[in-house]
Design a protein around this nucleic acid. Structure first.
Lengths: 203, 203
DNA sequence: GTCTATAGCCAGATAGAC
DNA sequence: GTCTATCTGGCTATAGAC
């Protein structure tokens, strides 16, 4: 028999930990701050998750699981290339506007700890390039799109979609806009990115 | 009269600090590790830079000063749009292959500390969009390129060039290549990125 | 399950000899 | 300028009462 309060406490911790870790990173985060954020006692963090490292890993894996399905839209859905690009750019940007710190958090910790990727790759939810590669190669042969390597196109799609969130503070500085204006630029990008890519690969 | 050994010590510290901060970030870095890396006594760090924070700021500003001229190629050189795109993509990727941790370091710390941008913007070396904006608008009117906003194009150029370095560990996982293969993909991108952009904006 | 109190450690910073 | 020794505070983690 599980009490609802138990679930609530564990989830409250995970959500608070997510917020703090996403902002401060593993080494910058403080257990006390997570406890305050979750409005519980600090020692409960250890009761539920044993150590800071374990709590961090729980947060990281949850974050990554949110991201993987987004990537799978590109790699493994039954859509035409154009549909994939349009849908991904629209959905991903919408998703990121809701979770702006997520990509930065994930990339940051993967850079600190590159071996971590190996662990992720071995999970069955980890997206594979294989279908996408075939699709692009066929489209090139059938002259539906110009000649381009699937890897390069894939990197381009990710770059154009994700970078504006990671580099938000810097870009805001360069183009000299405030938060609201930048938000509006991101909205425009929902369709702008897809147009940009499709223009580039069409015959 | 300044002894050469003084200069050497201060520079050795700055270089060691750069290495450690770029890898670990502000909160993950340890003064002892920086001292070891510089092969000097830990208390000398405080003698020369007073505090960890001050040492960090010195490193950050030096790093940013390396990056700004790169951006100015795009924004403020006397080149045609195509030349700018080709030269930037080639030069920037070459530069980044030599300093792969630099963009990640800068973006990471700007995300932790967004007010930091304001300080950078006020420096006279900080690049301005004005010339680039005029150049793009004119090119659109003269029908040299298709209609596109200067901001969107600028974000696209930065994204395609910088993201592959920030997200290297993740992308290596997705497309399943080792370091050497990824390095070769980045080499290809020196020209590939420019082609991709120019294809997209040509009439 | 939840709390208080505290152990134990580690890092940044400084005092002071040379 | 450079060293050793040490202070001081803050942090993770745990012991133990309830």
């Amino acid at each position: 028999m599980i009490k609802t309060k138990d679930i609530s406490a564990e989830e409250k911790i995970l959500e608070a930990a997510r917020q703090v870790f996403e902002n401060k990173g593993m080494s910058g985060a403080r257990m006390q701050e997570i406890a305050d954020e979750a409005k519980i006692n600090k020692s409960l963090l250890h009761y539920y998750y044993r150590s800071k490292q374990k709590l961090f890993e729980a947060v990281f894996k949850t974050a990554f699981k949110k991201l993987a399905p987004q990537i799978n839209i590109i790699l493994n859905s039954d859509q035409s290339i154009c549909e994939k690009i349009r849908n991904f750019s629209k959905n991903y940007t919408s998703f990121m506007i809701k979770h702006p710190y997520l990509p930065n958090f994930i990339l940051q910790e993967l850079n600190r700890n590159p071996e971590f990727v190996k662990e992720l790759v071995s999970t069955k939810t980890f997206p594979s390039m294989k279908n996408f590669q075939t699709q692009i190669q066929e489209a090139v042969v059938e002259k539906k799109i110009r000649k381009i390597e699937a890897e390069q196109l894939f990197i381009n799609i990710l770059s154009l979609n994700i970078f504006p969130f990671i580099a938000a503070p810097l870009i805001k500085g360069f183009i000299n806009v405030n938060d609201k204006e930048y938000r509006s630029i991101l909205e425009t990008r929902k369709t702008e990115i897809a147009n940009f890519i499709i223009q580039s690969i069409k015959i």
